[in-house]
């Protein structure tokens, strides 16, 4: 239901009561409203849906998930030969 895509905040400015960020998705950027993620800062990754950031991605949590997954896979010998996540 709801296509939302992570992108990185390159810059942000106040305009008419809203914070508007320039957010990078791969090789493009587009303006994104930060009204719902007041805590987001330049350099953060946000999940964007229809032009609004709906969450600030938790880098530590993402990392931890990967460690768990990798341990799980490696313990089972499934990840042998894989470079693992970047």
């Amino acid at each position: 239901m709801c296509l939302a895509v992570p992108g990185r905040i390159l810059e942000a400015e106040e305009y008419d009561g809203s914070r508007i960020a320039k957010v990078q998705f791969g090789g493009i950027t587009r303006p994104v409203l930060l009204n719902f993620v007041p805590e987001a800062q330049v350099g953060d990754y946000v999940v964007v849906h229809v032009g609004f950031a709906i969450s600030r991605l938790d880098a530590a949590e993402a990392e931890r998930t990967f460690q768990l997954l990798e341990e799980m896979g490696l313990l089972e010998g499934e990840l042998a030969g894989s470079e693992g996540p970047p």
Partner: peptide, 15 residues
């Protein structure tokens, strides 16, 4: 793309 590519990793998916 960060937070996308690593979640499409074939080895991880197969594991």
């Amino acid at each position: 793309m960060k937070y996308i590519d690593e979640y499409r990793d074939e080895h991880l998916v197969q594991a």
